[in-house]
Amino acid sequence: MSRINDLFEQKKENVLNVYFTAGYPTLDSTLGIMMALQDAGVDLIELGMPYSDPLADGPVIQESSLIALDNGMTIAKLFEQLKGFRETIHVPVVLMGYMNPVLQYGFEKFCADAAAVGIDGLILPDLPPLEFEQSHGAIVKKHGLDFIFLVTPETSAERVRKLDGLSSGFLYAVSSSSTTGKEKNFDDVIAYLKRLRSYQLTNPVLVGFGIKDKETFGAVAPYANGAIIGSAFIKAISAGENPNAATQEFIRAVLN
């Protein structure tokens, strides 16, 4: 059983997953923010590996990625920082990023090193499912990592089932066809989540894109197993001098 499976065994609703970009706002802030997220009651952490050309992301995450890169964050640097983090951080952690930096690092080495430091799963939105089935999936599994695919309201029922079958840990439901950080119509999102629920998928579903506070989390989380907050959290830690305190404050406001 993976750490992610354990989480969903124990908690089937209102799971809160928070995304932020490694190396943002400063090169050495990553572990402190992860710790603060755990302390504030976040169930799962999605750690973004910054990339120069993040196609699926909106301006907030792109900007944080560029700053993180300027700060000197790389995959190698991140793994170095993450060494030993499992001594203090017990919530599941997934890495999210784009294929190009991972390919340069070496896909197998990336999976091996991620697993070795204690990462639980991967989200690589531009890895084609066909390639995952034919080659990369076996490497991911060999190193005991979960792999999470994205589905959108435009994804056909047949394809949702296929992507659910390829995923482990959870399935990432993008709330509408859009980049991150855009405003949403929640009636449509709820209808879509109800549709996903009717498919009786094997994985838990977390919904992301457009979830920014207690109200929006509360509006959609009941129709899935929980939700993911990204851009709004990054904005929250951009403002202040003390990202750990900003983290505590932001998460408490969502959960209380």
Partner: peptide, 21 residues
């Protein structure tokens, strides 16, 4: 450049050793 992925296809891409374009 070296082989990499840019704008949705695998090709030859000018990038840093860390895979930033």
């Amino acid at each position: 450049g070296v082989p990499g992925i840019l704008h949705g296809s695998k090709s030859i891409v000018m990038q840093t050793p860390d895979g930033q374009v």
